[in-house]
Design a protein around this nucleic acid. Structure first.
Lengths: 194, 194
DNA sequence: TGTACATCAGTGAACGCGCGTTCACTGATGTAC
DNA sequence: TGTACATCAGTGAACGCGCGTTCACTGATGTAC
């Protein structure tokens, strides 16, 4: 018969991260404990330490993964002629689809914010956000405004602060909100300058 | 000689709330503990329980206070012909001036979100946010966009996510960002319809 | 002005718990030769 | 193909700690008469 729990887990790192996502999605980042995650994953309570060093180390890994995914998402949305509105909609979609990651990413007190991998991922995502709105009179202000509006919408949506009669599709409302910012610019183009 | 610690504190409730603000401002809401606050205030560890019932009760009080102050701030900004931009700037100012309150207010998992006083304060603040942008083609969308952009900016600023070369005056940048949203509307008037 | 009594605010001991982290360890795996 | 050995992944006991909450209590205050 096969043993129920082989000595080596296989991919404990991945499993712990996934469990962390579950906990955070349901109860928020402050509910995370290494011992609980170990329990969920069926491993001794000291197991996770091997992969993350620390509780903060685990959350660092989660935040890094989040910034990486966000960068990929934004890049994909901007490729092939995506407008700023597409990029903004992608930002909102990321935030609601990866709520746990999103929440941790913007709580730097929870992780090792000087971790090199993390910072690289952060920079990558930030560059993609800046790049989207180059054809405005004041592009720096426009970039901050653009980031603010999608970030704000995503945050308000995720915390349940928004009125419920906005419907149940955050992606489409998010897109409308992003489009509203550039309602004057015919076409609202951005992203690709080739 | 006067006793160092009179038996009755005088205003323990107020003192605990203030101490909580200090802790949250410095270390975030998850660092709050009733015992620590009691220690800071110079009172037995069970003292605060008398006034708040609960740890969540304490945070409920803090959030309520926050929504009340926000409502006052927004009302003051809208009075006497304040434009939406004024109201938006006031929102940002509140968020950076009362960072601790602001942070707790949008973490409903931390408090008793069905508390009647809390909900009343929430409704008051929400109404003032809705009312600011009545002269847009789609006022509901405009209201969500307006709330999103100032909320997003404030959140990004408070978490330190924004680039440092925006300067050190969140209020004025916040105002610019809010103004950017309505850059097409000459005058960008709102708030008073008298 | 004085007394009795109810109410309120804060005390301090005690409970039981879950946590992060450390440690010496052992089982499993892979690699050099 | 086989053996020795290094490395790696996970174990389980132990540590010390701070926490929230409960409880019977006592000091202080205020109010009725």
């Amino acid at each position: 018969m096969t043993p129920e729990r082989p000595y080596h887990h296989g991919d404990l790192r991945r499993a712990v991260l996934t469990a962390a996502v579950d906990v955070i999605t349901e109860h928020g980042p402050s509910a995370v404990s290494l011992r609980d995650l170990a329990r969920r994953v069926g491993v001794s309570h000291a197991g996770p330490v091997h992969h993350f060093r620390d509780k903060a180390g685990l959350l660092t890994a989660l935040a890094t993964e989040g910034f990486d995914t966000l960068a990929e998402t934004l890049a994909a949305a901007g490729d092939g002629g995506g407008t700023y509105v597409d990029v903004g909609a992608a930002y909102v979609a990321f935030a609601v689809d990866h709520r746990a990651h999103f929440e941790v990413m913007f709580r730097p007190d929870l992780y090792h914010s000087d971790d090199p991998d993390l910072r690289a991922a952060q920079r990558r995502a930030a560059a993609l956000l800046q790049g989207g709105v180059t054809d405005e009179p004041d592009p720096r202000l426009a970039a901050v405004a653009a980031w603010s509006i999608v970030h704000g919408f995503a945050t308000l949506w995720n915390t349940g602060a928004l009125s419920r009669d906005l419907g149940d599709d955050p992606r489409s409302v998010g897109r409308e909100v992003a489009a509203f910012l550039f309602r004057g610019d015919a076409g609202a183009r951005g992203g690709d300058d080739r």
